[in-house]
């Protein structure tokens, strides 16, 4: 792992930020492709981007810090409700609403971090679940703030930057979400290779050794939880802005479990794994579960078992290692 990191850094010293530039171009192209291939399904693609943020945020705590959590959707949901309420209260500027979501997510993330990062193993997992379920029960109870089981409806944000109105076909929503995703993803690519990001990885690999070299583990993990919360908060904000409704499903346990599944199928511990995993998973789900929701569950379960047994690091790292092994051979022949 450390060799690979060192290599990545050497590569990046040739050009200024080549990995980040590459990501920028690749994602913009993929986004454009999505726009052209699914012109009638932009609402779906926009929802998908909201969930991508949630999976990325989970990757930051699970993939980079090794915290097993099944309560990440609580952060997403709290941010979405905060944004919905801010919008209903009269704050309609979408960029400001993103800020509200980020702050709400970060606060909720810090709060969960204080509880969840204190322990390891089973107590950690159970606390993450309990926090998630507590938020879900509260969202159901505080119907004056959340709309209860009916959901919080009527969120109608103003034009983006005062120019682009949200249209019926979801074009503005899609482009807006995509731009935010590309920006956040590029920042995160840089962030996970920062000294702080590397320290988190060290904590994950061996927290005792990290402590021995002087890292203060618990505060670092809480901070990472806060940053992860901000990312999840952006996702919640985008979902609220684009769909105009926030329902109880956004804080549900099922959402948390599904997020973890997407992350692991893609590959925890790499941002590309989280990104590609969540996109491919949701497109697949969109078609299969529309055909038959119960077969979807069986297929998903089988897929999960196969991935855990045969590609425990996820499909994206698996694909990368296969390409790495095949590419030199092909190069030698030609």
């Amino acid at each position: 792992m450390s060799d690979r990191l060192a290599m990545e850094d050497r590569r990046s010293s040739r050009l200024p930020f080549p990995a980040e530039l590459g990501a920028l171009v690749a994602m913009a192209l993929a986004g454009l492709l999505g726009y052209l291939v699914f012109p009638d399904d932009l609402a779906f693609l926009t929802r998908l981007i909201g969930i991508v943020f949630l999976v990325l945020s989970l990757d930051l705590v699970t993939g980079y810090c090794g915290i097993a959590t099944l309560g990440q959707s609580a952060i997403f949901g709290v941010a979405a409700y905060a944004v919905g309420n801010a919008c209903l209260a009269g704050l309609v500027d979408p960029v400001a609403l993103l800020g509200v979501g980020m702050v709400a997510g970060a606060v909720m993330g810090l709060a969960s971090g204080v509880l969840v990062a204190k322990f390891q193993g089973l107590p950690q997992l159970v606390l993450s679940i309990a926090v998630g379920q507590l938020v879900a029960a509260m969202a159901n109870k505080l119907s004056s703030v959340t709309g209860g089981s009916d959901g919080l409806a009527g969120i109608s944000p103003g034009p983006v930057l005062g120019i682009f109105n949200f249209d019926l076909y979801g074009r503005t929503g899609y482009v807006f979400s995509l731009v935010v995703l590309v920006i956040v993803f590029v920042i995160l690519l840089r962030f996970v290779r920062s000294p702080f990001g590397l320290l988190c990885r060290a904590i994950k690999d061996d927290s005792l050794r990290a402590r021995m070299i002087g890292a203060r583990v618990y505060p670092r993990l809480i901070l990472m939880y806060g940053i992860s919360g901000a990312v999840a908060g952006i996702g919640g904000a985008l979902t609220a802005i684009n769909t105009g409704v926030v329902g109880l499903d956004s804080v549900s346990f099922e959402r948390s479990a599904e997020t973890l599944v997407m992350l692991v199928i893609g590959g925890a511990g790499t941002l590309w794994g989280a990104l590609i995993g969540s996109v491919v998973f949701q497109i697949f789900e969109h078609y299969v579960s529309a055909a038959n929701p119960f077969h979807w569950m069986t297929i998903l379960g089988l897929m999960l078992i196969v991935v855990v047994l045969f590609a425990p690091r996820g499909l994206v790292p698996l694909a990368v290692s296969v390409v790495d092994r095949i590419a030199p051979r092909l190069g030698g022949k030609s």
Partner: peptide
Amino acid sequence: SDELTQILLTIGITFVIIGVANY
């Protein structure tokens, strides 16, 4: 194995059982 592997494998098993029971 670590918790994450166990969680995912057993969630997978649960999904399969739910799907089959429902079908």
